[in-house]
Simulated scan of single mutants.
Amino acid sequence: MEATPHTSPVATHEEAATAESGGIHDRGLLAIAIFKMAKSAFFFCVGMGAIHLLHKDLGDEVLKLAKILHRDPESKIVTLVLEKVDLVDAHRLKQLGIGTFAYSALALTEGIGLLLERTWAEFLTLGLTVSFLPWEIYELIRHATWVKAGLFAINLAVLGYLIWLLERKGTFAKARQKWFHAR
């Protein structure tokens, strides 16, 4: 397939790969893409929540939430949350909002790239997944929960699948070949 003036050779190669598969999306990549986009939506909502809480009394907000959830305001959990919320100021909320919006944008980029079956997105997801593993292992050792263990297992499955897929497609071999011929 020849590259036209409006397409790059990489895009043409990826389009050819999709055409060869009959236009059917890789189900594993589709599942990972949906997971990444759901994660993006979650962190976007967390960022919006942080921005919404700016210039509000967080203690009052916790008490309102406890009332909505029919929790005793003097219970151990509400008291613990109230103690921790006192440590959060407007600057920290801004940092949290900016950080979660940035992570949301990154997860959305991964998800869209994987949905379009772009090799760069597979490598981006592979790199980001590997980079978070030490932190996840540390958190599991420090205080293991079922949620942390489940997320760790999902990330290991994503990592394994992407390595398998990139090996199957011969992408690692092509990257090594380009890297060593360019030097």
Rank of each mutant, 00 (worst) to 15 (best):
A33T: 06
G59S: 11
E139K: 15
I137V: 15
A175W: 07
V88I: 13
G59Q: 11
K56Q: 09
L166D: 05
R118W: 00
A90S: 14
G23Q: 10
F35E: 14
K76L: 07
L87G: 04
A66Y: 08
I77T: 11
L126N: 01
G49K: 03
L69Q: 14
T125V: 02
G170W: 07
E15K: 09
A31P: 01
I137T: 11
R71M: 11
G47R: 11
L96V: 13
K67C: 08
E74I: 06
A121L: 00
I32F: 01
L116R: 14
I141Y: 08
K39I: 03
T125L: 03
T7L: 09
V81S: 09
L151C: 05
G59T: 10
K84N: 15
G160K: 00
K178E: 10
L106R: 12
I154V: 14
I34K: 08
I98R: 08
T18N: 11
F123T: 00
A102Y: 07
E61S: 07
D72L: 03
L82D: 12
K169N: 10
R142H: 08
I163K: 02
E139M: 10
V78P: 12
L126E: 01
W179C: 07
M37E: 07
E83M: 06
K174C: 09
D86L: 13
F123K: 00
M48P: 06
A121I: 00
A144L: 08
A121E: 00
G47H: 12
D86W: 04
T129F: 00
W135A: 13
P5N: 10
I34L: 14
P5S: 11
M1L: 13
V62K: 12
L93V: 03
L165Q: 08
S75C: 15
A157Q: 01
D72I: 04
K84W: 14
D72P: 03
P5G: 10
V81T: 14
L115F: 11
T145C: 05
H143R: 12
L128V: 03
R183T: 11
E2S: 14
T4L: 15
K178L: 10
V46Q: 06
E139T: 07
W120F: 03
A66W: 11
D57L: 02
G97W: 07
A182N: 09
D60G: 05
R27N: 03
L165M: 05
A33F: 10
Q177D: 15
L87E: 15
H6I: 04
I51S: 11
A173H: 10
T100M: 05
H143F: 10
T79K: 15
V130F: 03
C45I: 09
Q177V: 06
G47K: 11
I34A: 10
R118Y: 02
E117V: 01
